[in-house]
Amino acid sequence: MADRSSKRRTLRLKTPISAEDIADFRLGDVVYLDGLIYTGREGVYKRVVDEGAELPVDPAQVGNVNFHCSPAAAVREDGSYNVGAVTATASFRFAKWLDRWFEISGCKVIIGKGGMTSEAYRKHLVPQGAVYLTTVGYGTGALLGRGIKRVVAAHWLEDLGIAQAMWVFEVENFGPFLVESDLQGNSLFERANAEVAKNLDALYEGLKPPVMSRYGETDDRKDELI
């Protein structure tokens, strides 16, 4: 097995994550968390940012880590929660809410799937001193589920449903995550994209052009496809 993991730093951190820890992150670091984290995605963002609803809990009390996630969970008959697997959802869809969300919540770390563009990091995360951690795989749902020690609360469960509710979890050795963005707004994924892109022309070399193009290959709606 090509094991070069010795090059990779593994960090285990308590939430809320300090500004010093965030400043120390390097792209590609492996991170595990202990403490409190919460979930929030379009359902919560719409309600808080678009509609101006009060957060159901003081954000300072639930850590500064926002997980873009919907757990595989069920509510038992006695009202307790059965949380199985936990994986992230794709974050690029949520950038438009983040400026206000950071201001309201004091969030400093986003965990999700796939990251965002470095442009979005520079615009929304860097000014707030915030960074992005990506889940691994995707997804290590069972490992992350194992890391959840307790459901502290499931806010707005009735209104938003299991997938969109604001879950607050107490976690232990919760991970792995990879540092995807840093305080300069660099992106680990974009670094990989740039490497992969070097090979693309050679891949298509010699393949004849398609008989019919399609929208998607052209943005000009006045173009013909033949």
């Binding site: 697997a85 994986t87 795989g137 995707y138 997804g139 749902g141 992350l144 589920g145 194992r146």
Partner: peptide, 15 residues
Amino acid sequence: NYEAAKEDRRAMCAD
């Protein structure tokens, strides 16, 4: 992760 899913009898992915 596959091992953890089997050991814990929990879904391997939440999606």
